[in-house]
Amino acid sequence: METKQDNGAVERIEQEINDHPVVLFMKGTPIFPQCGFSAMVVQVLTHLGVKFKSVDVLNEPPIREGIKQYSEWPTIPQLYVSGEFVGGSDIVREMYESGELAELFENKGIELEEA
Protein backbone atom coordinates (compact mmCIF):
# COMPACT_ATOMS: atom_id res chain seq x y z
CA MET A 1 0.00 0.00 0.00
CA GLU A 2 1.38 3.41 -0.93
CA THR A 3 2.00 4.86 2.54
CA LYS A 4 4.21 7.69 1.29
CA GLN A 5 2.13 10.82 1.38
CA ASP A 6 0.85 12.00 -2.01
CA ASN A 7 3.32 14.86 -2.66
CA GLY A 8 0.88 16.52 -4.98
CA ALA A 9 -1.51 16.96 -2.05
CA VAL A 10 1.19 18.25 0.31
CA GLU A 11 2.40 20.77 -2.27
CA ARG A 12 -1.16 21.96 -2.92
CA ILE A 13 -1.87 22.26 0.83
CA GLU A 14 1.32 24.18 1.52
CA GLN A 15 0.69 26.47 -1.44
CA GLU A 16 -2.80 27.33 -0.13
CA ILE A 17 -1.77 27.95 3.48
CA ASN A 18 1.24 30.02 2.45
CA ASP A 19 -0.60 32.06 -0.20
CA HIS A 20 -3.56 32.96 2.00
CA PRO A 21 -3.44 34.22 5.62
CA VAL A 22 -6.65 32.34 6.53
CA VAL A 23 -7.54 29.01 4.92
CA LEU A 24 -10.46 26.75 5.80
CA PHE A 25 -10.40 23.17 4.52
CA MET A 26 -14.06 22.24 4.68
CA LYS A 27 -16.77 20.00 3.28
CA GLY A 28 -18.68 22.03 0.71
CA THR A 29 -18.39 25.78 0.23
CA PRO A 30 -19.14 28.77 2.49
CA ILE A 31 -22.36 29.30 0.56
CA PHE A 32 -23.28 25.57 0.53
CA PRO A 33 -21.55 23.89 3.47
CA GLN A 34 -22.13 20.11 3.38
CA CYS A 35 -21.50 19.46 7.06
CA GLY A 36 -22.68 21.16 10.25
CA PHE A 37 -19.19 21.41 11.70
CA SER A 38 -17.85 23.12 8.57
CA ALA A 39 -20.89 25.45 8.52
CA MET A 40 -20.22 26.47 12.13
CA VAL A 41 -16.62 27.51 11.41
CA VAL A 42 -17.82 29.50 8.35
CA GLN A 43 -20.30 31.31 10.62
CA VAL A 44 -17.62 32.13 13.18
CA LEU A 45 -15.27 33.56 10.53
CA THR A 46 -18.10 35.49 8.87
CA HIS A 47 -19.26 36.89 12.20
CA LEU A 48 -15.73 38.07 12.99
CA GLY A 49 -15.59 39.60 9.51
CA VAL A 50 -12.48 37.67 8.47
CA LYS A 51 -11.71 37.12 4.79
CA PHE A 52 -10.72 33.51 4.23
CA LYS A 53 -9.89 31.11 1.40
CA SER A 54 -12.01 27.96 1.53
CA VAL A 55 -11.02 24.62 0.00
CA ASP A 56 -13.82 22.10 -0.65
CA VAL A 57 -12.20 18.77 0.19
CA LEU A 58 -15.21 16.92 -1.22
CA ASN A 59 -14.05 18.03 -4.65
CA GLU A 60 -10.47 16.94 -4.05
CA PRO A 61 -10.20 13.46 -2.42
CA PRO A 62 -6.37 13.56 -2.27
CA ILE A 63 -6.59 16.79 -0.24
CA ARG A 64 -9.31 15.28 1.97
CA GLU A 65 -6.93 12.55 3.06
CA GLY A 66 -3.68 14.49 2.67
CA ILE A 67 -4.76 17.27 5.03
CA LYS A 68 -5.45 14.76 7.82
CA GLN A 69 -1.94 13.38 7.57
CA TYR A 70 -0.43 16.85 7.15
CA SER A 71 -1.84 18.14 10.43
CA GLU A 72 -2.14 14.75 12.17
CA TRP A 73 -5.79 15.66 12.70
CA PRO A 74 -8.43 13.09 11.75
CA THR A 75 -11.37 15.28 10.84
CA ILE A 76 -12.56 18.09 8.59
CA PRO A 77 -12.97 21.14 8.88
CA GLN A 78 -9.48 22.37 9.56
CA LEU A 79 -8.61 26.05 10.02
CA TYR A 80 -5.16 27.45 9.19
CA VAL A 81 -3.99 30.96 10.10
CA SER A 82 -0.70 32.33 8.74
CA GLY A 83 0.30 28.84 7.64
CA GLU A 84 -0.32 27.21 11.05
CA PHE A 85 -3.01 24.67 11.98
CA VAL A 86 -5.34 26.26 14.54
CA GLY A 87 -7.90 23.50 15.03
CA GLY A 88 -11.13 21.84 14.03
CA SER A 89 -14.66 22.98 14.83
CA ASP A 90 -14.45 22.32 18.60
CA ILE A 91 -11.30 24.33 19.11
CA VAL A 92 -12.40 27.16 16.80
CA ARG A 93 -15.68 27.42 18.72
CA GLU A 94 -13.90 27.37 22.12
CA MET A 95 -11.41 30.02 20.96
CA TYR A 96 -14.21 32.14 19.49
CA GLU A 97 -16.24 32.02 22.71
CA SER A 98 -13.21 32.92 24.84
CA GLY A 99 -12.11 35.73 22.51
CA GLU A 100 -8.79 33.97 21.72
CA LEU A 101 -9.68 33.68 18.03
CA ALA A 102 -10.15 37.43 17.54
CA GLU A 103 -6.91 37.95 19.50
CA LEU A 104 -5.06 35.48 17.26
CA PHE A 105 -6.19 37.31 14.12
CA GLU A 106 -5.17 40.66 15.58
CA ASN A 107 -1.76 39.30 16.63
CA LYS A 108 -1.23 38.04 13.08
CA GLY A 109 -2.26 41.41 11.64
CA ILE A 110 -5.38 39.99 9.98
CA GLU A 111 -8.15 42.52 9.49
CA LEU A 112 -11.51 42.02 11.22
CA GLU A 113 -14.43 43.81 9.59
CA GLU A 114 -17.19 44.13 12.19
CA ALA A 115 -20.16 42.21 10.77
Binding site: E72, W73, F85, V86, G87, D90, I91, E94, M95
Partner: peptide, 10 residues
Protein backbone atom coordinates in the same frame (compact mmCIF):
# COMPACT_ATOMS: atom_id res chain seq x y z
CA UNK B 1 -1.92 23.29 23.50
CA UNK B 2 -5.57 22.46 22.83
CA UNK B 3 -4.60 20.88 19.51
CA UNK B 4 -2.05 18.65 21.26
CA UNK B 5 -4.54 17.70 23.96
CA UNK B 6 -7.16 16.74 21.41
CA UNK B 7 -4.55 14.81 19.38
CA UNK B 8 -3.78 12.71 22.47
CA UNK B 9 -7.44 11.75 22.71
CA UNK B 10 -7.69 11.04 18.97
Amino acid sequence: SRVQQHQLVY
